[in-house]
């Protein structure tokens, strides 16, 4: 029976997703972490904008003293660098949801003890408490898995400092599987950049010269400058070969002094 005659209504399903391209990259160093992304947002073959922000710095208030030390600080060392890549509407929604959770968590942690119960705070500590990276990561898992059957179509990467002050990167699949890693790329350029990072960050397939490929090159932490070079190389390379990556590169660096950001132009073609 032809579908036009109404006996069998034609199923026209609304597609609630789109692919907005782009690439997201996180590297953890010894006492710092980097989260970087390109700033292009596209759909099909159209560039929506050359300056969109896929990374949000979720930070406690930046104090005047911190600003004095360096003017370009955009977050404290207790910040969570939150990046999403994929379907941008879901990315924005997830970022907003996490931010909300983060704010309430920090608020609850720091809210004063009820009058008459001060003895509970034995040492009378005034220390401010923040959300640790591992707690942030677990919370993101819950947010993602909460929509297991109508997923947020995004690859999520968090970067920050762990409770020992070491750099850390957490990466998530769309439904909340996650892992702490030294480095991770998400999004359109992931397949191009990931092997490069295996090679240059974790020294995969590198052996000590003269040992006839019997002794692996030992893994060691890279310096911040080395990491930034890798990030820029990775993005210029993937810009060359992937159509949805380009326009600009936004890099966030978190260390004991706080968060600062860099912007570099990428090719606009």
């Amino acid at each position: 029976m032809s579908p036009q005659h109404g006996s069998q209504p034609i199923q026209h399903q609304f597609n609630p997703y789109s692919d907005n391209g782009g690439t997201l990259l996180g590297i953890a160093g010894e006492d710092f972490a980097i989260l970087a992304s390109d700033t292009r947002q596209s759909v099909d073959y159209s560039i929506n904008t050359r300056l969109s922000h896929k990374i949000k710095v979720i930070s406690p208030p930046v104090t005047k003293e911190m600003k004095l030390e360096s003017t370009d600080i955009v977050g404290t060392k207790n910040s969570v660098l939150f990046g999403t890549n994929g379907f941008s509407a879901d990315g924005d929604a997830l970022t907003k949801a996490f931010e909300e959770n983060w704010k309430w968590y920090v608020h609850d942690q720091n809210s004063n003890v009820e009058t008459g119960f001060e003895f509970l705070n034995e040492n009378n500590e005034e220390k401010e408490s923040f959300m640790s990276m591992q707690s942030a990561a677990r919370n993101v898992q819950h947010l993602l898995y909460g929509k297991r059957f109508f997923p947020y179509y995004v690859h999520t990467i968090l970067a920050g400092l762990d409770e020992e002050g070491k750099g850390c990167v957490y990466s998530f699949d769309p439904v909340g599987s996650y892992e702490r890693e030294q480095c991770r790329v998400g999004g359109a350029g992931a397949s191009l950049i990931m092997p490069f990072l295996d090679n240059q960050v974790n020294f995969k397939n590198q052996y000590i010269p003269g040992t006839n490929s019997t002794e692996r090159r030992k893994i060691e932490y890279l310096s911040l400058d080395e990491c930034l070079k890798l990030v820029k190389d990775a993005f210029t390379s993937v810009t060359e070969r992937h159509i949805t990556v380009g326009d600009g590169l936004e890099i966030f660096i978190i260390d004991k002094n706080g968060v600062r950001s860099e912007y570099h132009a990428l090719k606009k073609d």
């Binding site: 789109s18 947002q41 929506n48 904008t49 050359r50 300056l51 379907f87 941008s88 509407a89």
Partner: peptide
């Protein structure tokens, strides 16, 4: 700024 039926938004 722009927003569409999917909730995708951007400024340019």
């Amino acid at each position: 700024e722009y927003v569409n039926l999917l909730g995708v938004k951007y400024a340019s």
